[in-house]
């Protein structure tokens, strides 16, 4: 017998890449939350209404990740002294590895078997 798929209407969730690349506990249902607003990364910051591309994350060199809006707001305040709110190191936005992104993503997929 041969099974041919004509059309597959599937359902998937999106999640931010890389948040927990290291731990690879991707199957954990409770995703991490933004350290500033305590809303999950896949949610949106309090000022936004729509998650995803409209409320993106920002990655710091210090390995901390926040909603971009949350962090920018923090950085905007005088008290912040341009530091990461978690570790008080001065904030440096990490270079995102845009081009090779698919490699780790794909391998992450494989390693989940």
């Amino acid at each position: 017998m041969k099974v041919q798929i004509k059309n597959w209407h599937a359902v998937a969730q999106w999640r931010w890449d890389s948040v927990s690349d290291d731990t690879n506990k991707g199957d954990d249902d409770e995703g991490d939350v933004c350290g500033i607003c305590r809303v999950p990364y896949e949610g949106c910051c309090p000022a936004c209404k729509v998650p995803g591309d409209d409320c993106p994350l920002i990655w710091g060199e210090c390995s901390h990740v926040f909603h971009m809006h949350c962090l920018l707001k923090w950085i905007g305040t005088a008290a912040s002294k341009q530091q990461c709110p978690m570790d008080r190191r001065s904030w440096v936005t990490a270079e995102r590895k845009i081009a090779p992104a698919q490699e780790p993503a794909a391998s992450a997929d494989h390693s989940r078997d």
Binding site: K2, K6, H9, W14, R15, W16, D17, G26, I98
Partner: peptide, 28 residues
């Protein structure tokens, strides 16, 4: 999933495989 990650570099897909429908043709 791979193509998706190419299109949206910061995001990954996680399948909810039990949902949805499949249109199949079985050739016996």
């Amino acid at each position: 999933a791979k193509r998706y990650s190419t299109f949206k570099p910061d995001k990954q897909l996680r399948w909810l495989p039990h949902l949805g429908t499949v249109h199949l043709e079985l050739q016996l």
